[in-house]
Design a binder for these strands. Structure first.
Lengths: 165, 165
DNA sequence: TATGAAATTCCCTAAAC
DNA sequence: GTTTAGGGAATTTCATA
């Protein structure tokens, strides 16, 4: 059984914040920034990686990829059956064209971001994922004109209290 | 004036695919995987980075962060004025809580993904970004129950042709 | 148990070919 | 494109509070 993740201290917060901005910073540069030695920083990074909290990935610039078609698809499943949702989860995770999938509050069950190479490819994937499957009540595909901002930065702690107006 | 980006060859496609999964792989590991020497791989990576095609970032696991509140916000601007849109672009890019922002086809102009630390924080950010500003006609905030899948992987080439049914 | 500093190993980088 | 050589960073070791 996995042990509970140790709570993050102030060093952790500052390191994770820096790493999300620039994953290429050296250990000593990170150490200087937070007031720790390079080895202390390194030990923490190892801990983050082993626990699965942190992983390093490459992000490509969509503008430089020739034929890229992004789409946001809103989906509602046929009925509130747990089976449908777990199967849907698995399908989204398995499909390489599915960049992201969020389960939503409100009149749509899911928001799915698709990354494909053409309108035709996008249509084919959407039909395969959302139409050929029996348990989907409705879906609505909205093409992306432009990716204004792309990132996965997450806040690791509440923001500093805002001064009351 | 920037020169046109050189078209990607088979090595590039395979390297970019691998890097999007794990940016920590060593040059020789990447070389072994695609059939190139470490230095050849290195020269390609330098090229990707200089052109801005590739950047390395750290990604955190949302499940391991205590209080995380994600939301999808649909936004329509007041009027089709270029000024409004460029200002909106800048605002989205500057706000740290905005993970992603897509300009959409259809009845909503934008889809914005917010990453905050609580419902209250989410509400505060949404009001600051979309309500206090005069040029927004309407917006609709949908809270995320669960992040089923998260990533930014992009396809670098069309998928292999599918056998006709 | 976590730290900082020194020693070692390994990888990235930039040559030359 | 590959092989080689050099510098630098990541990792390990160790003494310590």
């Amino acid at each position: 059984m996995a042990s509970a993740p140790a709570p993050l201290d102030e060093f952790d917060h500052r390191l994770l914040d820096l790493l999300q901005r620039d994953a290429d910073a050296t250990l000593s540069a990170l150490g200087d920034a937070v007031g720790l030695s390079a080895s202390a920083v390194q030990r923490r990074l190892v801990r983050y990686r082993k626990s699965g909290l942190l992983r390093q990935v490459a992000v490509l610039d969509p503008a430089q990829l020739g034929n890229l078609t992004l789409a946001a698809v809103l989906v509602t499943l046929e009925r509130e059956s747990v089976k449908h949702h777990t199967a849907f989860y698995a399908r989204m995770r398995a499909a390489p064209e599915v960049q992201q999938c969020y389960e939503l509050a409100g009149d749509w069950d899911y928001l799915v971001i698709l990354a494909t190479t053409s309108i035709a490819h996008c249509r084919e994937v959407a039909e395969r994922l959302f139409y050929d499957e029996g348990n989907i009540r409705r879906y609505d595909t909205r093409l992306v004109f432009e990716a204004v901002k792309l990132g996965l930065q997450l806040p690791t702690r509440p923001p500093p209290a805002r001064r009351r107006r």
